[in-house]
Design a protein around this nucleic acid. Structure first.
Lengths: 192, 192, 192, 192
DNA sequence: CATGAATGAGGTTTCATTCAT
DNA sequence: TATGAATGAAACCTCATTCAT
């Protein structure tokens, strides 16, 4: 089913999510994937190469799951935003918020160190913000939201609240704060 | 004058801010502080020890600058929130948003790996949230804010928006997105 | 041919014998074996790991040479004890008694510090004592030794005399004292 | 009462006994003696210097306690050898045989590495052997021992049995084996 | 495709000793 | 006498990567 490259990328994705990119060693990945040195360097040119593959894989998945399947769907905009919040909460509830947002973490760890990582991450966040912005615009058209609201800036705020909420939840190792913030989002944007 | 320990802590604070804790080597600090190996371990028991000292120093400073001097001040609540936003923006404008929030970064890098780091960081965020919560309560009392607003949850949201906004700005290496978010905060909480 | 692991173990065995375990650095072994840092840690998980491998190798060799080939042989018991003394003397004469007993040294250096070392060493000495005890029992059966002799306690004494004799010889850097003690053993147990 | 030098020497003596000379750091001693770097190097030229002081202190004590007060005493020779065995057993029973013979340990650790240590240790063992030899000669004169016994060689054997017995007891962390050996000594030399 | 031996720079830490005060 | 800052070599170990088979 999966190619070997995909398989290794997936395994690396989990480890990098839990330990960070720099703290993850090629050995960690080899051990988890049950492959030897030669194998690894056969499939990937370098650790950096693998790191980028992980980000791409992550971004591709989330584009499908979040952008395409939820935000760009033909649902009612309110439904779409609610589905987005549920999707985020489900992900983090599953792993008990312990390790935070896989992409947000890499954004912080790598943005200042490596432009290739940064650009891929930036692209994802841009898509996310833009899709939310479109949804907000729909809401305004539908009179579900006041037209004084700037869709772009408010989309940025919503994404920021989610990422910041995850950060705060991680620092408390408790998902409650993220749930609180979702309530505020729902109130502010009339999602109930 | 600074003590030598304080001096090294300050130097390490900058390096850790720009590279992260794990990617910062004791050698980096030695070189920047112009001290030898032995000297470093004369002042600090371990790199971990230094890391904690850096977090403490950071937290102490920000408690003074943000919590005590701004949020717990006797100013009008609207003024206080505005001063908070200016304070945040000034910090990040100075370093061109390149490296993100020194405490938020450590929250993400260290929370899942080390409880000692996590607790110190959690404590700071709790204070920040609580102080904002008190300010929002004042605003409600003053009829500057609708009483349907839950001060605690909205305080969490505001801090999350700031931290998330910094994250997004870092991923774009551009402070504009943080400024956009500040505009939304001002609109939502009537700070103009 | 030796495997590389075996080869390094042998080299380390000599160095550890002459300097002791703690005073032997991984660098010493690397230099003697002509390998790099990484290579050493490719073959051994840690210096401790290598130390245990050295003890095992040593014990295995001596079990074969002393326990199996000499003491558990089908010779006359007197012949076996004499062969044992010759075997011990030969080993120490070869290296001019300079460094003492490789196992006795580690017993003293490591027993109180590390249970893994201690247990392997204890097991060897137990086997040695037990084999000598069996030989003494044979002698009693053959009327070569008075039946008032307790085989176990006298076996312990004989091994103690040998190890203690090596210790005294080392402290004088002169094998004569060990030879003197062997004469006493021969007289006490009628080995002439 | 004690001079400072003596006090530090005593503290170091205990630590070196339990960890060995090489594994004992100057810091360990400073910490245990509650003194600073400067203090230490005021009283001792180097760690080596302290090590020699420890051996001297040890040897001086044991010369008094064992050689002078017991073996060179005017008691009956049988009594003197019995008192010697009791003295040895008492010392090791007190510390549950854990760390072995302070002098025997140093003999093994240092003899091949450092002639200054070696000579001091050799001198002590020589005195011990010679004193026992004199006692055995007395016994022969008193017809308490057969005149075919060579006093010098048998004295060496007795000391070897004691040191070797301690070694075996340490490797089992159990003093029983030393007690067994004492029974054999008593039987062989008619000390009951 | 695959193995794992080899490399060497660099990681954190400890050490004995010296020096300025 | 006494303090503790400073030094730098060397300790154990990990790492990403390359190479021979």
């Amino acid at each position: 089913m999966f190619s070997r490259v995909k398989e290794i990328t997936r395994i690396a994705r989990e480890i990098i999510h839990s330990k960070g990119y720099q703290a993850t060693s090629v050995n960690d990945i080899m051990a988890a994937a049950n492959i030897g040195k030669g194998q690894f360097y056969h499939y990937f040119q370098s650790k950096h190469d693998l790191g980028l593959a992980v980000v791409e894989d992550l971004v591709k998945d989330w584009e499908e799951q979040l952008i395409t399947s939820i935000l760009n769907d033909s649902d009612d905009p309110v439904t779409k935003l609610n589905r987005m919040l549920i999707w985020v909460e489900t992900i983090h509830a599953k792993m008990e918020i312990k390790y935070g947002c896989p992409i947000g973490n890499l954004a912080i760890e790598m943005s200042a160190q490596d432009d290739e990582f940064r650009e891929k991450i930036e692209k994802f966040f841009n898509q996310w913000v833009n899709s939310v912005s479109v949804v907000l615009t729909e809401m305004i058209k539908n009179d579900q939201l006041d037209e004084s609201i700037d869709p772009q800036k408010n989309a940025e705020s919503i994404v920021a609240m989610i990422e910041g909420g995850i950060l705060l939840s991680v620092s408390q190792q408790n998902i409650q704060i993220l749930k609180d913030i979702f309530k505020v989002i729902k109130q502010q944007y009339h999602l109930n």
